[in-house]
Design a protein around this nucleic acid. Structure first.
Ligand SMILES: [Mn+2]
Ligand SMILES: [Mn+2]
Ligand SMILES: [Zn+2]
Ligand SMILES: [Zn+2]
Lengths: 144, 144
DNA sequence: CGCTTGTTTAGAATTATTCTAAATCTTGAC
DNA sequence: GTCAAGATTTAGAATAATTCTAAACAAGCG
């Protein structure tokens, strides 16, 4: 039931998009809203379907464009788990992903704040890292 | 130019394939050889091109099939870095990947042997984990 | 052998993503 | 405000990546 408080959110969106020379558009706002409404790491296709409910004229290409824009300006992350469509996540805190190989659900998991991992050869300059854990989630483990 | 010592390798391949009820075929051997000859994390398409040199009749579908077979029986890993084709790695020791965003090269990097990462909610059963580091490799960092 | 089952093959089909060109919108200079 | 420049959206075509299909092959076995 939560209503959006446009002024504040728009502020944030406009600001972040601005850092990359991008404009706030109704489509970008809609796509961003979709991502935050259900944080289940949807694919571009799923975002498209959800966005169409509120904005039936939105196109496929625009959803890809908006998702890329959000990624570029630091409002969303791409998540690549396995063969198949890229997924998107609006949680910009440092986190990893737990992928349940039974039900396919993707859970955010906390990570230590510093690079935990070791032996990066000298001269290499790490910028970010992704961690994915594969396994069975609590629900699926119980059902076994 | 190193000749293969078939008996030993075949033994290993046959054995591993056997654990999953799969047979050793010339195509699977060829695909496995390709993976080990140049450990640069090729895509299925690249494996296909390389495999064709020694085995011109091999088909696309077979390369996918062979790669899947190798992954299933634990002789190769899939590596998913970003949008685009899946890559394959025959290095089965525990390791992560450093992806240079300038030149695109993928380097194997060592990882601590135990799960470094924390707070997996109770009831969840992790089975494996992947770590990818994005950044600039030593070569590209020097050229800047 | 003749059967069963696993594998390969070419090509079609499907899925995921990007490209293209035209229409639309925004912004800023006049 | 008017208008040009640039950004964005759109539908649909094009491409890339992967999977599917059905027929041919091959191996193991009684
Ligand atoms: Mn996430
Ligand atoms: Mn590797
Ligand atoms: Zn599950
Ligand atoms: Zn590099």
């Amino acid at each position: 039931m939560k209503l959006r408080s446009p002024s504040h959110d728009d502020q944030h969106l406009t600001e972040r998009l601005g850092t990359t020379g991008l404009r706030l558009t109704p489509q970008r706002q809609q796509v961003y809203d979709v991502l935050r409404q259900k944080r289940d790491h949807p694919t571009a296709e799923e975002v498209f379907i959800r966005a169409k409910k509120a904005m039936p004229e939105i196109s496929h290409a625009t959803v890809y464009n908006c998702l890329d824009a959000l990624v570029k300006c630091g409002l969303a992350r791409q998540v690549q788990l396995e063969r198949g469509a890229t997924r998107f996540c609006p949680n910009m805190t440092e986190h990893g992903h737990f992928h349940c190989s039974v039900c396919g659900t993707i859970y955010d998991v906390e990570l230590p704040h510093e690079l935990p991992c070791v032996a990066i050869p000298s001269g290499f300059e790490p910028q970010s890292y992704d961690v994915t854990i594969h396994g069975t989630c609590a629900d699926c483990a119980r059902k076994k």
